[in-house]
Amino acid sequence: MKYMLLIYGAENSWTEDERKACMIESMGICDELEKQGKWIASSPLYSVTTATSVRVRDGMKQITDGPFAETVEQLGGYYIIDVDNLDEAIAIAARLPPAKKGTVEIRPLFPLP
């Protein structure tokens, strides 16, 4: 079963040192998952200030600056993992450093036929 882990958090809640430590720890977890055949993809994202939203309405392309929703916690990264069940996904999500400051949302991937 594939799950996407969406990392949400307030962007200003990390100091530069914390951010570096978080990267190193996260990459360690990715290596471990990859060895177990559970890692598919993951990446941090640039700040939400770089976000661009696109909508097509009545055939017209609308391009705006910023994310889809203005919230306190922004999407800051993602993981795609392949594990047996939700409990295993929860256990991995709980180990990710951003879970301590923000929120990790777990979404099962809808399998295409």
């Binding site: 079963m1 047996d84 069940n85 939700l86 409990d87 295993e88 777990i106 099962p108």
Partner: peptide, 14 residues
């Protein structure tokens, strides 16, 4: 069904 919640007794730590 969709999120595949396991049919399991939680581990002692959980």
């Amino acid at each position: 069904r969709d999120a595949r919640i396991p049919y399991a007794i939680p581990s002692l730590s959980d």
